[in-house]
Design a protein around this nucleic acid. Structure first.
Length: 482
RNA sequence: GGCGUUGUGGCCGAGUGGCUAGGCAGAGGUCUGCAAAACCUUGUACAGCGGUUCGAAUCCGCUCAACGCCUCCA
């Protein structure tokens, strides 16, 4: 896996053999989760699924940020969730509840597995206060006017602040823009561990320093170390969190526990829309559920969530991905071809010998995923598998019973368990529908035998119109439901 | 302005020095009553300009563009 800390691919060696501790920065629940967020969480869902597939016992922790981040440094520390709550005249926790439910609904639609633990920032105020106390004890933070700031320059005397993002503090000092409202800090690079609440601030907790709220990098340090230990295997998040968020996490954890907290830092890349940054302000923006509903101005038609999932998995998680209607339509056709093959595979009979080496193919799938979770290469290999399936169907290839079992097991494992795709073609394909279509196929075949092309084509075309496609093959007619 | 990443054929997207990535679309063929599906065949692709090398999409330099970070952000 590619480790952002060393900027190189490294073999994964867990701290405890057979076990993996993985932490991923979750959403701030003050608005609807957007498609870019989904991509990041999907990337780590893929990683979670694959590590589990390999037999690791994975504890996957993904937080909910319900204490809000500061809107900016200039406005005396207003918190996004508080602000949203004030504007909508809600309790902050009503805002949090609403968007947490939305978040879970979206991830469920996209078939993301729930994490092992999903802790909330507000549920870990005490742990965060304890970390602040410890950092103060170490002399790496200072209190001023009821707020506590991390002393970046002092920390940098012994440690490298910028180790993850490849920055050094001298550059940062020279390039810092002048911002208002930072007079409290000794240096602009310092970041808040605790902020005193202003009168209008409705989320607040008591602390030794003031009634206030924790700094915006602290919760991840508190929750990751609480559930995964002072050192753990994998920490993930979006590329944009690398600096300052993850840099601050490293500084906090090193100050508090005197060890580097994370062995492998993984960062997912951004999703762009029609070649441009996704932004509400320009209208170049789409919500995940709008893909499914079709209620948007970006896409030509609605798409199942699993098609969008498949589309995103066709790109590597560390590459920028351009989302567009054309690209999604292309992915959809490929998705249906893959699903059709998976469906056909279940009905193939074993032969007396194997005409291709199924273990070589299986290894190529593992090789793809073992190379930094390269799902696009895995999918390319699965399409090689699709070719084999089609050859088997046409009796141009054969597999022994043993090899066929490996083939089916591998195919199903990668498509459903690892990639987490859902076969929407089989969902509506109930027994009753199947029997009705079989009956129509019989009637059509009778008509064809009588050269009654008008009737036979009518049956075929009417079925196609409702999404049932007939496929005439050497062994008779089959069908698929789209 | 500073730092960083990226720029692949009509579209999306792998690939890091010589060996067909893959999907979608397109073209030709097999099959078919005609189609569809499936199968087979098919693309002088690597932003531009220089350089290194026997050989570069892959390494180096410059230019342009996009994206990210520098301030909350997946």
């Amino acid at each position: 896996m590619y480790n952002s800390l060393t900027n190189s691919k490294e073999d994964f060696i867990p701290l405890n053999e057979g076990y993996v501790g993985m932490y991923v920065c979750g959403p701030t629940v003050y608005s609807n989760v957007h498609l870019g967020n989904v991509r990041t969480f999907l990337s780590f869902d893929l990683i979670f699924r694959y590590l589990k597939h390999l037999g690791y016992k994975v504890r996957y922790v993904r937080n909910i940020t319900d204490a809000g981040h500061l809107e900016n440094d200039a406005d005396e520390g207003e918190d996004r969730i508080s602000k949203k709550a004030r504007l909508e005249e809600l309790e902050p926790m009503e805002v949090v509840q609403q968007y947490t439910v939305d978040f879970h609904k979206v991830l469920d639609e996209f078939n993301l597995l729930p994490p092992s633990i999903e802790p909330t920032a507000t549920g870990h105020i005490i742990e965060q206060i304890n970390i602040i106390k410890e950092i103060l004890n170490k002399g790496l933070a200072y209190e001023i006017n009821g707020s506590v700031y991390f002393d970046v320059l002092k920390y940098n005397e012994k440690e490298h602040y910028g180790i993850l993002s490849g920055r050094n503090i001298e550059d940062a000092i020279h390039n810092t823009r002048e911002l208002d409202g930072q007079s409290e800090k000794r240096n602009p690079q310092d970041f808040a561990l605790w902020k005193k609440a202003q009168p209008e601030h409705i989320m607040r907790w008591p602390s030794p320093w003031s009634d206030g709220f924790p700094g915006w990098h602290l919760e991840c340090t508190a929750m990751s170390t609480k559930y995964l230990g002072e050192q753990f295997d994998i920490h993930g998040g979006g590329m944009d969190l690398k600096f300052p968020h993850h840099e601050c996490e490293i500084a906090q954890a090193k100050s508090c526990y005197e060890v580097s907290p994370v062995k492998y830092w993984l960062h997912g890349n951004m999703l762009i829309l029609n070649g441009r940054k996704m932004a509400k302000s320009t209208g170049n923006y789409i919500l995940p559920l709008e893909i499914i509903s079709g209620n948007n101005t970006i896409l030509s038609k609605p798409f199942p969530a699993t098609v969008a999932r498949f589309f995103m998995l066709q790109a590597h998680y560390r590459s920028v991905l351009d989302f567009s209607s054309d690209a999604l339509e292309g992915a959809e056709k490929g998705y249906y071809r893959l699903m059709s093959a998976v469906g056909s595979l279940q009905n193939i009979n074993a032969g007396s010998q194997s005409s291709f080496d199924v273990t070589v193919w299986r290894q190529s799938c593992y090789d793809a995923m073992n190379d930094d979770f390269n799902s696009p290469v895995l999918i390319a290999q699965l399409f090689e598998g699709v070719k084999y399936v089609n050859q088997l169907l046409e009796n141009k290839a054969s597999l022994t019973e043993e090899d066929l079992a490996i083939f089916k097991e591998t195919f199903n494992a990668f498509v459903f368990d690892v990639l987490g795709l859902v076969d929407v073609t089989s969902k509506d394909n109930s027994d009753k529908l199947g029997k009705v279509v079989e009956m129509l196929i019989d009637m059509r075949n009778e008509a064809r035998a009588n050269k009654n092309w008008a009737l036979s084509d009518k049956i075929r075309d009417k079925l196609a119109a409702v999404g049932v496609q007939l496929k005439d093959g050497k062994e008779g007619t089959t069908f698929s439901v789209n």
